[in-house]
Amino acid sequence: MNAPSVQRLDGDRLHLQHGPIDVVLRAWGASAAVRDAYEAVVVRFATILPELAGELTELRKPMGARPQVEGPVARRMVAACRPYGGRFVTPMAAVAGAVADELLEVMVEAAPLDRAFVNDGGDIAIHLTEGETMEIAVAADFARGPVPALNGRITLTDRDRIGGIATSGAQGRSFSLGIADSVTVLARDAAAADVAATLVANAVTINHPSIERRPARDLDPDSDLGDHLVTTAVGPLPREAVLAALEAGRVQAEQFRLRGLIRDCALTLRGETVTLGSTRLPRETTQ
């Protein structure tokens, strides 16, 4: 296992990378507080991947098999997935968000910060003290090519009590059972947002001959999804099919919102975007 790398970026940001974990973070506050927070997060970051690797067998088990874990990040992953135990989901659905939450907590406990974020591959943990705000750009529209276009921006305040934003979908780096270009979720923390985004993205689907799927195990023998069919390609779809798939995902997201598991959700497919509309996620794709 290679050693973790730490790089200072412009804008007083840190880039931390270790194996598949790729994080960009920033803290605001007194210079001494930011320094202490960065020193603490670098020390903690070096231990996360070995911890997760040591419990990978349990973390790949479906929640119905009651995975037993000990590490703090692994416990965050299991806790985030526990409310969804009635459906197929493994703790790996929350790994990026849980890592972001753990690193953010280390920073906040190390020093009094005004605000901070930890972005782990697009799953973001956020800390805001009273009176602070943070603007987040949402880039989720793949209708014009492989690089997502900017849908809009949202401004979070401490009063929103949103500590995590996560995005999932068939265009992302992980397998998806659905066809969404992207699903962005706002929740109490990044781990909660991460697993919800995964499950809502899975629900954005329809049966159509232009959709290609293969067992996850055929693409990656170590995938926690096993023989579940994952999306490998989506051909041309009529608009009514796109809207039907988005509606299936929206219904799932609304159920999660009513249970208090998420605050809002934006779902995008082929240039069409729908939201629950309970906060300030962009309601339609920017033209």
Score class of each variant (00 low, 15 high):
Leu49Tyr: 03
Thr198Phe: 00
Ala40Pro: 11
Pro91Arg: 04
Ala53Asp: 14
Met63Lys: 07
Arg66Met: 13
Val108Lys: 09
Phe256Arg: 04
Ala137Pro: 08
Arg35Ala: 14
Gln7Asp: 08
Ala180Val: 13
Glu272Ala: 05
Leu49Met: 05
Gly249Gln: 03
Arg270Asn: 08
His228Glu: 04
Ile262Arg: 02
Ala80Val: 09
Ala244Ile: 01
Gln7Asn: 11
Leu104Glu: 04
Val195Lys: 05
Asp220Lys: 11
Asp12Leu: 12
Ser182Asn: 06
Pro209Trp: 10
Arg217Leu: 12
His18Ala: 09
Asp22Phe: 08
Gly29Glu: 02
Thr205Met: 12
Arg188Leu: 14
Ser176Cys: 12
Ser176Val: 06
Leu104His: 04
Asp158Gly: 11
Val99Asp: 04
Leu49Glu: 00
Glu51Asp: 13
Gly19Cys: 08
Val73Phe: 06
Val89Ile: 15
Gly145Ile: 09
Glu51Ser: 11
Glu105His: 13
Leu156Arg: 02
Arg76Val: 02
Thr157Asp: 07
Gly19His: 08
Ile126Trp: 01
Glu135Tyr: 06
Gly169Asp: 03
Val185Met: 07
Asp36Leu: 13
Met92Tyr: 03
Gln171Ala: 11
Gly29His: 02
Ser210Cys: 12
Gly152Trp: 10
Arg214Gly: 06
Tyr84Trp: 14
Phe45Trp: 09
Ile165Leu: 15
Ser168Trp: 00
Ala94Ile: 06
Ala40Lys: 07
Ala32Tyr: 05
Val89Glu: 12
Asp10Arg: 15
Gly29Ile: 07
Tyr84Ser: 08
Leu104Gln: 05
Thr273Cys: 11
Val108Met: 12
Glu247Ala: 06
Arg213Thr: 13
Thr155Val: 15
Thr133Phe: 10
Ala33Leu: 02
Ala98Ser: 15
Arg270Lys: 14
Ala79Pro: 11
Gln17Trp: 05
Gly29Asn: 06
Gln255His: 14
Ile21Glu: 01
Leu25Ile: 05
Gly260Met: 08
Ala216Lys: 00
Asp158Tyr: 10
Ala100Val: 03
Leu25Phe: 03
Gly121Thr: 08
Pro50Ile: 06
Ile262Phe: 02
Arg153Val: 13
Val138Tyr: 01
Arg270Gly: 05
Asp36Cys: 11
Ser174Trp: 13
Arg159Tyr: 10
Ala98Met: 09
Asp158Cys: 10
His208Lys: 10
Arg82Gly: 00
Asp101Asn: 05
Asp10Pro: 11
His208Glu: 09
Glu130Tyr: 07
Val108Arg: 12
Ser168Phe: 04
Val24Tyr: 09
Phe88His: 09
Gln171Gly: 03
Asn202Trp: 01
Arg173Gly: 00
Glu254Val: 03
Met1Ala: 13
Ala191Met: 14
Gly97Gln: 08
Phe88Asp: 03
Arg13Glu: 12
Arg161Glu: 13
Ser223Asp: 06
